[in-house]
Write a protein that binds this DNA or RNA. Structure first.
Length: 152
DNA sequence: GCCAACGTTGGC
DNA sequence: GCCAACGTTGGC
């Protein structure tokens, strides 16, 4: 049972948006390493939701994987900003998973704090220039974050 | 809004 | 197969 971290820009789609909708197809992932992580996700696994490109970037709550990976329909849609003309229905290049809301932290755990936590010292998340938006989370990282916060 | 860091593309 | 150019990410 692996845990995961998904980044999102709250201006585009926030944890609050996910809470309102309950469940959402996590589309638009266009990075091979991230896609490979999506493909190894199993329904029921836990997710940290991370807000990037915001005044205080950090982990703001939790979600759950609600479906196995399947082809991301936006890659075939010429009107989508995620359209990929090089992808075919016979061999889809990009996948998504459905994500369901779990909980919102009373206190988000900011990147500034994560950087100082022992469990995150080897994590891609705190590496300068890291752009990966789908990352595995270790058990130690999961508990370290959960110990610092409370769910609403 | 700026810009460093990164992944991808395409000419050669 | 190299690598410059380009587009995007994300902290600040």
């Amino acid at each position: 049972m692996t845990c995961w971290l998904l980044k999102t820009e709250p201006d585009a789609f926030s944890l609050e948006d996910l809470r309102r909708r309950g469940e959402e197809p996590w589309d638009g992932i266009r990075n091979y390493q991230a896609r490979n992580f999506l493909r190894s996700m199993m329904p029921g696994e836990s997710i940290f939701i991370y807000h990037s490109r915001t005044s205080v970037p950090g982990i703001v709550g939790t979600a759950c994987i609600a479906s196995p990976a399947r082809p991301d329909p936006t890659q075939f849609d010429p009107t989508s900003r995620y359209f990929d003309p090089a992808s075919t229905r016979q061999a889809p290049r990009w996948d998504l998973v459905d994500v369901s809301y779990a909980g919102t932290f009373l206190e988000p755990v900011p990147l500034e704090i994560l950087r100082k936590m022992e469990a995150f010292q080897d994590s891609l998340l705190i590496r300068k220039g890291n752009r990966l938006s789908v990352l595995p989370v270790t058990d130690a990282q999961w508990s370290a974050v959960m110990q610092r916060t409370r769910l609403v």
